[in-house]
Design a protein around this nucleic acid. Structure first.
Length: 264
DNA sequence: CTTAATATACCCATTACGTCA
DNA sequence: GCTGACGTAATGGGTATATTA
């Protein structure tokens, strides 16, 4: 029993650099050479298909339409918004997009280039959600398949997953934030208590010269009124090493002096 | 083997639209 | 009908990684 016990509050504050998503962890690890603490955000029980796990499909995908961007790459290596947007579309995607946007144009008569916001149907949302539960990222094949199944553009599926991941992360951040707030409160209380105990111990130390000549075994002290009394310790235990039969452990402290004034 | 350019996928912050009170 | 809040689809910019010349 001692300071270790005092420190053992049962709290575990876990601050680290890990994020739920491996890619992000790698990226952030590189960005932060000086470790900045961060909250650990994890989807419990979710595994992320990372790019590391995707290369085969990725590769296939690239092989499937390797030349679709050639004309674009000739334009600029630095993607202008337009180029980037178009670059995101494989030829197959572009085909689907044409189909979907022509469908959309049926509904909006005036807005030629207006940014129309799609509302996903319940069925679409449910299927996306279901798919997200299985894996929070999609490889290109899965994306294509899902898009076909939902009659959406692959880009839309991709965006949905991105936004979904972001929402999950935000939620988790809020939970972590709440948890850390509680930890902070607990530690503040603990700190306050220890400060108080320290003050009391200092006060005891100041009083020490007056009874230094007395046999240590006979000394006990009331922390409340700070008077020293001679005689056996309260619980009848053998005297401790110090001049006082006191421990730093707060709960023992209160055990010894449940009613300090009465002891005097 | 090394390097620069390019392609791709992803994340994040932000914008903008649709809905609802 | 107007408005502000909110949820979320969509956009744009940036980065990491793999591939290729």
């Amino acid at each position: 029993m001692g300071i270790d016990d005092l420190c053992n509050t049962g709290l575990v504050l876990s601050l680290g650099l890990e994020t739920p998503f491996k890619i992000e962890a790698q990226r952030q690890a590189k960005q932060r050479l000086n470790f900045e603490p961060s909250l650990t955000l994890c989807l419990s029980g979710t595994t992320k298909a990372t790019r590391d796990e995707q290369p085969p499909a990725d590769h296939l995908y690239r092989q499937a339409s390797p030349h679709s961007h050639n004309s674009l790459s000739a334009v600029s290596s630095f993607s202008s918004p337009r180029v980037k947007r178009e670059r995101d579309l494989s030829s197959e995607e572009a085909e689907v997009e044409t189909r979907v946007s022509s469908k959309a144009s049926d509904e909006d008569d005036d807005g030629a280039n207006a940014r129309k916001k799609l509302r996903l149907t319940k069925e679409q949302s449910a299927l996306l959600e279901e798919s997200f539960k299985q894996h929070s990222t999609l490889n290109p094949k899965q994306k294509q398949a899902l898009a076909r199944q939902l009659n959406l553009r692959p880009r839309q599926v991709e965006v949905w997953f991105q936004n979904r991941r972001a929402r999950t992360k935000l939620k988790q951040t809020e939970v972590d934030c709440e948890f850390l707030k509680k930890c902070c409160e607990t530690l503040t209380d603990e700190n306050r208590r220890l400060q108080k105990e320290l003050q009391e111990l200092k006060a005891l130390k100041l009083a020490q010269p007056f009874y230094m000549h007395m046999p240590a075994a006979t000394l006990t002290m009331c922390p409340s009124c700070e008077r020293i009394g001679a005689g056996p310790s309260v619980d009848g235990a053998a005297p401790t090493k110090g001049p006082f039969s006191m421990t730093t452990k707060s709960h023992l402290y209160s055990h010894h002096f449940t009613n300090p004034s009465a002891a005097c």
